[in-house]
């Protein structure tokens, strides 16, 4: 539609004005409902879109990843703060399940159950799942935690108010409050290393190459190869967080 400026009467002006202002007013009442739609659609980055693969069969529970993570990211030493840790699952013959993670596995593991009582046992390295529909990002009231265009969930520690809502929302226990800073802290997938073309510290240090990461949008990437050649599963799939941390040989006991 072409508007003839010379003929624009006052009435038309008000009419157009009312429509525009009214339209904005009406549409703005719908904006809050945008918030409802957070976990409905599966977002996917256009460029790089990082995913992680962990092969439980290869993990020997040395805990080097947990230690490297603490050192690389200056995480507090106390055994209550982990961006990355390892759990040892032992399923006994009687069906009971024993899970241990002393100091996140940093000091190594001991098998406390005698061999003849063990049905099976394995290690599960844990870290942030960098979910595409992160419950933690969804609940952050101020936008201090977010997904980068590459799909990494980061924290803006200069903006975090320390309300701890995200800690409650994370189903995987991957967040903690740094008592010194008063803000939340979590795995950054070592974005400072990725930026320099290096691997994240826990990947770099893994002696058995049990950890793999790569671009999910690139069909030839290591992570896509891993997904193709293994039967992979995420933890707590029923929560539909669209986790991007895929485990090979994940047992149903793992939560």
């Amino acid at each position: 539609m072409k508007i003839d400026k010379t003929k624009l009467s006052r009435r038309d002006f008000f009419k157009a004005g009312t429509i525009i202002v009214g339209g904005i007013a009406v549409s703005s009442t719908f904006i809050p409902f945008d918030g409802l739609l957070f976990a409905i659609e599966r977002p996917k980055g256009k460029g790089k879109w990082y995913g992680i693969g962990i092969d439980i069969n290869k993990c020997i529970g040395c805990g080097k990843c947990a230690k490297a993570c603490k050192i690389e990211n200056n995480v507090l030493d106390e055994p209550f703060y982990f961006r990355s840790w390892v759990e040892q699952y032992t399923i006994k013959m009687d069906g009971s399940i024993l899970v241990e993670s002393p100091n996140g596995g940093i000091d190594g593991f001991k098998q406390s159950v005698p061999d003849e009582e063990i049905f099976k046992s394995f290690f599960v390295p844990k870290m942030c799942n960098h979910c595409a529909k992160s419950p933690c990002v969804q609940v952050c009231p101020v936008g201090a935690t977010f997904e980068t265009p590459e799909g990494i969930v980061l924290v803006d520690e200069t903006y975090c108010i320390g309300c701890r809502y995200c800690v409650q929302a994370c189903p995987y226990g991957c967040r903690y409050i740094d008592p010194g800073k008063g803000t939340v802290d979590k795995c950054t997938l070592c974005i400072h290393r990725l930026d320099k073309g290096m691997q994240p510290a826990c990947f770099e240090i893994c002696p058995t190459e049990a950890r793999i990461f790569g671009d999910l949008n690139d069909p030839k990437s290591k992570v896509n190869e891993f997904l193709k050649n293994h039967t992979c599963m995420v933890i707590k799939p029923h929560l539909n967080t669209d986790s991007k941390l895929f485990y090979n040989a994940l047992s149903s006991e793992v939560r």
Binding site: G35, L36, C140, V142, G143, A144, G182
Partner: peptide, 29 residues
Amino acid sequence: PLISHLGKPFRAYEIMITPHLSSAMAIFG
């Protein structure tokens, strides 16, 4: 009580300045 339990109470105003619409807590403001 909510504000005094925050790790950074003086940043509480951010909830009003940049409310994240998908967060129940932000809308609560």
